[in-house]
Design a protein around this nucleic acid. Structure first.
Length: 135
DNA sequence: GCCAACGTTGGC
DNA sequence: GCCAACGTTGGC
């Protein structure tokens, strides 16, 4: 089981909306590096859910329920999406500021490449983030 | 195939 | 609102 990090602007699609929906197709990724990460996702993998632009914190944990398939919002047929469901909110949100201050997270993909909307999280990083969340 | 111009993302 | 990072487009 691998762990990933997916970003969403809460104004566009918030954690609360995600919880209300119970399951969603993660559409709209139009970046090749992010697409490669989507393609590597397997059912059962988990994803930290991060609020970009507003909030700037990881708020919850999700699970991949279906691997990559054509993105239903894409008319070109070039892009793909996975389906995810919420697992649980974190004990407390982990802010970008706190992550940047944590030396163990200095090499995190999302820190090094801030614009990448779907990124991998290592086991060490995952454990660190969960600890920061008070879990 | 290079590179300047431009658009978008996302943090500050 | 600004700007850095980065991706894409289009002229040459």
């Amino acid at each position: 089981m691998r762990t990933w990090l997916i970003k969403s602007e809460p104004g566009a699609y918030s954690w609360d909306k995600f919880v209300a929906d119970q399951r969603t197709e993660w559409t709209g990724v139009r970046n090749h590096a992010a697409k490669l990460n989507l393609m590597a996702m397997q059912p059962g993998d988990q994803c930290f859910f991060y609020h970009s632009n507003e909030g700037l914190e990881i708020v919850g944990l999700a699970r991949v329920v279906r691997g990559a398939a054509p993105d239903s919002s894409d008319e070109t047929g070039k892009w793909i999406a996975v389906e995810v469901e919420p697992l649980r909110a974190l004990g407390r949100p982990v802010t970008l500021k706190a992550m940047k201050a944590e030396r163990a997270l200095a090499d995190m993909a999302m820190i090094r490449q801030s614009r990448l909307s779907v990124s991998p999280v290592t086991d060490v990083e995952r454990a660190c983030i969960l600890k920061m969340a008070g879990e």
